[in-house]
């Protein structure tokens, strides 16, 4: 016990000494690339494609950050992290920002000394069952066997849900998503539970998707977002505002395709939307300098992969095999939760 305290203290001292030296942004600029902690393989959110290039919803945010900092979305190094290694990778400084569908929780925020600077996807835990089971609500799952990934927050949520509803279940623990799907399809469990986004993509990949339904209950809040270390607020602000810039771009109808047009129009037109002007750094507006970036930061971020809605549609939206509806992730103007503070 004493030894671990000693080691911890030693580690803490080294870390503090390190953070005091220079800001993350300076380090990134000196290094010439952003190091982004990514998922080692999650459908639609982050994984290398057949050509070895990282793609996905989370990866697009990394690209947008790199574009905001360097004006070049390719200046990112992706470090694939597992569920176990992700937070250490961030705490030890191996990655600058972690965009790996990590749930914002109290203990991660406070105990692990991280800042969840934004929420780029509002997820929640759901259930999938076979249609011929004849179940239409999770509360009817009394006595069911449930496939559940071990060692995750979903496991705890599941226990809470069944306990509060006073019904019994038998957990079938599995190591990962693929095995869960296998067990579920083989009939080893009646229901399969994980984040709703994961359920949707799993269902879409099944031999006969129509034979399975996702139950309406969402039993937990899983706000997923980019994470940075405590102690460098400037860098946290940059990550946060890159995300907000993408959301505002959607709100204002600025897309990858019409970006040049909007810029030209705003430059020509005195009466054009002043917030768009501030966001895109038109005229005397130079908001980027307040964060240590140039005035083109938001333009570059939007130009990389489009606004928030475009990124959503391209990676996980209804036009993709994953087919997620916007739901909670729609803009606040359309009944969702994506709301960005004003650029002013």
């Amino acid at each position: 016990m004493k030894k671990s305290v000693l080691l911890g203290a030693l580690a803490a001292t080294t870390m503090i000494a390190g953070f005091a030296s220079a800001g993350t942004l300076d380090d990134i600029k000196a290094r010439g690339e952003l190091i982004c902690g990514s998922n080692n393989g999650l459908t639609g959110f982050g994984a290398p494609d057949a050509d070895g290039n990282y793609q996905g919803f989370d990866v697009s945010l990394c690209k947008a950050i790199a574009a905001a900092v360097f004006g070049d979305q390719s200046k990112v190094k992706y470090v694939p992290t597992t569920g176990e290694t992700r937070f250490t990778a961030l705490a030890s400084g191996e990655v600058d920002v972690l965009v790996r569908n990590s749930t914002w929780t109290f203990s991660r925020d406070n105990d692990l000394k991280f800042d969840f600077v934004a929420v780029n996807y509002y997820d929640g835990q759901g259930f999938m069952v076979k249609k011929d089971l004849g179940v239409s609500s999770a509360k009817e799952l009394d006595g069911a066997t449930v496939c559940i990934q071990t060692g995750t927050t979903t496991e705890l949520n599941l226990a809470d849900f069944f306990k509060t509803n006073g019904i019994a279940y038998t957990p079938v623990t599995v190591a990962d998503d693929a095995e869960a799907q296998r067990q579920y399809e083989a009939g080893a469990c009646d229901a399969f539970t994980t984040d709703a986004s994961g359920l949707a993509s799993t269902r879409a990949a099944m031999a006969d998707p129509t034979a399975h339904i996702i139950l309406p209950e969402i039993i937990s809040k899983e706000p997923l977002g980019p994470v940075v270390r405590h102690g460098d607020n400037n860098w946290g602000d940059i990550v946060r505002w890159v995300h907000f810039a993408l959301v505002i771009a959607e709100e204002k109808g600025i897309t990858q395709a019409n970006l040049a047009e909007v810029i030209a129009k705003s430059e020509a037109d005195e009466a054009a939307d002043p917030e768009v002007k501030r966001l895109l750094g038109i005229g005397d507006n130079d908001m980027g300098v307040m964060m240590g970036l140039d005035k083109m930061w938001a333009r570059n971020a939007i130009a990389a992969n489009g606004n928030y809605g475009e990124i959503f549609e391209a990676n996980i939206g209804t036009s993709t095999p994953i087919g997620l509806a916007r739901g909670l992730n729609a803009l606040w103007t359309q009944g969702g939760l994506q709301y960005a503070p004003p650029v002013r």
Partner: peptide, 17 residues
């Protein structure tokens, strides 16, 4: 596990076991 996970995360091959 590594490559297999990457392959499975492709929507084209998700569900292959």
């Amino acid at each position: 596990q590594g490559v297999t996970k990457v392959v499975r995360s492709d929507t084209a091959w998700k569900g292959i076991y």
